[in-house]
């Protein structure tokens, strides 16, 4: 951003006359149009059109297989209000988000400040990103095997350490959500840490120097300087990661879909909202209801994001 702004500011004095400025504006429009076109096509094709179609589908009883449906007004939404399975899956998703975002954010902040204060090695920064570079399905399969109750290497190790023989991860109704949350924390914490690290770079080192002169400890500096000053970055990172976290799907599908053939198990313990939407569309062929669920999810995410930005005062910085 900083590299772009000087150009635009120098462009203004060059066109001193008002009329010429206007002409430039209109004359620039076709050029701008062609530059914007590629992204506009992408936006229209992959965002605008699907959103409008999704809204429309949520007002129909669209059957996925037959590929047709009739307009039924707000019937899907009426059904949704009484749908206990919807609330259950939202509640499970919320539990997942709290565990995932909680652990991931704490770890990412620690990793970011350690990177900032201790090392500038690009090898370490690269290594932190490795789990994030792996496809979700690979991550899911990898952990599925490592945490298998009978042959998993992690389970073997834990049992060797003295944990119970009945240790179960994906097949336990109580452990499955924390396990999946932990896997995604492992996958995304490096990336999240890197985002925060970028934010930490904006904190002037003079602040730390002054604090050090006053005899502040490393922990005091972290609590009194780092945390407050990185709040805007933290807010942005949280918005991105929470929205991403609500959309957990592939890890659940891969790690719980196996031999039970009923992903979201055991006993529905990991049936998160995305899986419920998928199930309605693919298993029950009820694309209309699935669309209505998706619309509600978007609304929920918008509300969550709104309050997050307000609470974290994302727009202002304490640096000034």
């Amino acid at each position: 951003m900083t590299a772009v702004s000087p150009d635009t500011s120098t462009a203004t004095p060059r066109t001193s006359k008002g009329s010429k400025q206007l002409q430039n504006l209109t004359g620039g429009w076709p050029v701008a149009f062609w530059f914007l076109l590629p992204s506009m096509i992408g936006f229209g094709l992959f965002f605008l059109f699907p959103t409008i179609r999704g809204l429309y589908l949520s007002l129909t009883d669209w059957n996925l297989i037959a590929n047709r449906g009739e307009f039924i007004g707000l019937e899907n939404y009426r059904k949704l209000v009484d749908d206990q399975r919807f609330y259950d899956s939202m509640w499970r998703t919320l539990k997942y988000v709290v565990i995932n975002i909680g652990s991931q954010t704490v770890l990412a902040i620690l990793i970011a400040s350690m990177m900032d204060r201790l090392t500038r090695s690009s090898v370490i920064r690269g290594a932190l990103l490795l789990p994030w570079l792996m496809p979700n399905v690979v991550v899911g399969l990898l952990w599925l095997w490592m945490l298998d109750g009978s042959v998993g290497v992690v389970t073997e190790f834990l049992q060797w350490l003295g944990f119970s023989d009945d240790l179960a991860f994906f097949t336990s109704t109580t452990n499955v959500i924390p396990t999946i949350a932990a896997i995604n924390t492992w996958k995304f914490m490096g990336y999240t840490a890197l985002l925060m690290f970028a934010g930490l770079q904006t904190i002037p080192s003079t602040v730390y120097e002054a604090a050090a002169m006053d005899g502040a400890t490393e922990f005091q500096m972290f609590r009194k300087i780092t945390l407050p000053l990185m709040r805007p970055v933290l807010a942005l990172v949280l918005v991105i990661t929470i929205i991403g976290s609500f959309q957990v799907f592939d890890t659940v599908l891969v790690t719980t879909g196996g031999f039970g053939n009923q992903p979201g198990g055991p006993v529905n313990a990991s049936k998160v909202i995305y899986l419920y939407i998928y199930q309605n569309a693919i298993d029950f062929n009820d694309l209309g209801y699935a669309a209505a669920l998706s619309v509600v999810l978007v609304l929920v995410l918008m509300v969550v994001t709104f309050f997050q930005l307000r609470l974290l005062r994302a727009g202002e910085s304490d640096l000034a």
Binding site: T171, G258, F259, P266
Partner: peptide, 10 residues
Amino acid sequence: PIEDVESLGG
């Protein structure tokens, strides 16, 4: 146990 069956396959 059903847990073993779910993870390994019967």
